[in-house]
């Protein structure tokens, strides 16, 4: 009996010790997953593998080294039409803009994508998203 309480106590301490930021990050990941599945998975696929030479992958890609996070936010919001090289392979299709996605949505999306596919699994904060979107080219 005592044991059970001890474990419970430890768990509660554990949870409350988790930083606020980590809790927010986890919320973003969950929300971001929904956003990804409704807005992006049709092209980039649920697992981020892309579709042949038409839609580039978001998993196992040099994207995370090649593209700055602020640029990424702008691509998601405003779409892209340039020729790009992903893992050395050229892509030049058209990615539509997502005018409906707000700064918070983009922060959540990017936090989710980082969690799944980037080596850097940190939060992309709402402030960073706002700042990036204000300074899109």
């Amino acid at each position: 009996m005592i044991n059970k309480f001890a474990i419970l106590g430890l768990m509660i301490i554990g949870i409350s010790c988790e930083s606020r930021e980590e809790i927010t990050r986890q919320q973003y990941v969950v929300e971001g997953m929904n956003l990804y599945q409704t807005n992006c998975a049709n092209c980039h696929q649920v697992d981020g593998s892309g579709l042949k030479d038409l839609y580039p992958p978001l998993a196992k890609t040099d994207l995370w080294q090649r593209v700055k996070m602020s640029e990424l936010a702008c691509i998601i919001k405003h779409g892209q039409k340039d020729s790009i090289r992903v893992n050395g392979k050229p892509y030049n299709a058209y990615m539509p803009a997502n005018p409906k996605l707000q700064a918070l949505d983009i922060a959540e999306l990017m936090t989710y994508m980082r969690e799944k596919w980037s080596p850097n699994k940190t939060i992309f904060s709402l402030d960073s998203a706002r700042y990036a979107l204000k300074n899109c080219p």
Binding site: C43, L54, Y55
Partner: peptide
């Protein structure tokens, strides 16, 4: 929207 899914 749906065409990429259809093509997949």
């Amino acid at each position: 929207t749906i065409c990429p899914t259809m093509k997949t």
